[in-house]
Design a protein around this nucleic acid. Structure first.
Lengths: 195, 195
DNA sequence: CCTACCGATCGGTAGG
DNA sequence: CCTACCGATCGGTAGG
C-alpha cells in the first residue's frame, strides 16, 4: 500500500493538480494514453482511484490540460532564451538548444505532445493546434530571416520540417548517459542547416 | 451491420490473416494500440469479436506479427532497390527514396513500427530489435562508405540519427496531396547530407 | 470462423 | 480528497 499519503493542510504541497499533470505526462509517454488508466495516474501521486476526477472532469481533459501546460512552458522558455539576440544565426542555435532542452530535460510534457495528439478528441486537437502555431511562427520567422540573407544551406520548403524531424526524433534515441550532450547535438544540427 | 461477410470456400480470399494484420496496423497508428480493441480490428475485416483469436493468440501477438511482417517487407524492398548500385551517393539517394516509400506509401506497418514499440512486451521488443538491426546495418555501411571518401557533409556521429529523424518525422506531416512529392522530399534530404 | 459467454477492469459518479 | 459503487466494455475462451 502507498505509504506516501499525507494529511491535508501542510502548506508544503500546494499543487496536487500539477502532480497529476506531471505523472500523467510521464505515463502517457511510457505506456500510451490508451494503455494508461486513471488509476495508474492516481496511484503515481498517492491518490485513490476516484480522486483525479476531483481535479479533472475526464481523462481526455487531463490529457488536454497536460498538453497545453507543456506547450506554454516550452514557449515561455523559448521566448526567454532568445530575447535580445539580434543575429539570426546565433538565435537559431539558441532556439535549437532550447527546443532540445524542452524535449529531453523536461518532465515528458513535450514528448507527449509529439506522440499523443492522435488521442485527443477533435475539439482538443484544434485547441492544441492554435497554441502550437505560435511556437512554429517563432521558428519560421528566424528561418526566413536566414534564408533571405542566403545563410541557410537550402531554402527548400521542407527545411523547417527536416529540422523538427531531426530534433524531435532525438526523444527516441537520446540517453542522458549516451556520450552525446545536448550542446553537441544542438551544434551538429545547427551546422547541418547553415551554409 | 456489416454487409461484407462472405461464405467460406471462395478461393479468392486466401489470406484473412493478412487482412487482420493490415487492419490492425492501420488502427494502431490511427488510435494507438491501447485505444484499439480487438473488436475494432475484427469489425474492420468483417469478422465477429472472437474470431481474431483464431488467427492470433493475443492482442500482443497481433501487434508483434504486424511489426515483424512490416519490417521484413521494408527490408526486402530496400535490398531489391539497391541491388547492384555501386556508387554510394546514388545508393544513398535510392535508400532514402525507398525508405520514404516504405513509410508513406505502405499500409501503415512502418509508421506503427515507429510509434508503438513501447506497447510491446519485453520479449517482443527484443525480437523486433533483432530484425530492425539488419535494416540499420544496411544504412550504416553506406554512410560509412561515404564518410571515408569525404562525401558526407558531416561525419559527426549523430548524422545517421538526424537522417532517420528527418525521414521518419515525415510520417507526421506528409500528405499525398500536399504539393511535395516523395521524390522531392528524397532529393532535398539527400542534398542536405552530401557535401 | 461464429455463438455465447465470463471475469476483470475501466472511466466516472454520489455522497460525504 | 476518500469510500463505495455502477454500467459498460474489453481480452479471451469453450464448443461447435
Amino acid at each position: 500500500m502507498p505509504a506516501g499519503r499525507k494529511r491535508q493542510g501542510a502548506p508544503i504541497e500546494t499543487s496536487r493538480r500539477e502532480d497529476l499533470l506531471r505523472a500523467a505526462a510521464r505515463l502517457f509517454v511510457e505506456k500510451g494514453f490508451g494503455a494508461t488508466t486513471t488509476r495508474d495516474i492516481a496511484e503515481a501521486v498517492g491518490m485513490r482511484s476516484g480522486s483525479p476526477f476531483y481535479h479533472f472532469r475526464s481523462k481526455q481533459d487531463l490529457l488536454k490540460a497536460a498538453m497545453i501546460e507543456g506547450l506554454e512552458t516550452g514557449y515561455r522558455r523559448l521566448q526567454a532564451a532568445i530575447e535580445g539576440i539580434a543575429d539570426p544565426e546565433q538565435r537559431l542555435r539558441v532556439m535549437i538548444r532550447t527546443h532540445l532542452g524542452n524535449l529531453l530535460e523536461g518532465d515528458c510534457q513535450a514528448p507527449m505532445l509529439l506522440f499523443e495528439t492522435r488521442s485527443l478528441d477533435t475539439a482538443g486537437r484544434a485547441e492544441i493546434a492554435a497554441v502550437a502555431d505560435r511556437y512554429q511562427r517563432a521558428w519560421q520567422s528566424t528561418l526566413d530571416e536566414l534564408a533571405i540573407s542566403g545563410r541557410l544551406r537550402s531554402s527548400a520548403r521542407p527545411l523547417r520540417l527536416f529540422l523538427f524531424g531531426m530534433l524531435n526524433w532525438s526523444s527516441q534515441w537520446y540517453r542522458p548517459d549516451g556520450g552525446l550532450s545536448l550542446d553537441e547535438i544542438a551544434d551538429a544540427a545547427t551546422e547541418l542547416l547553415l551554409a
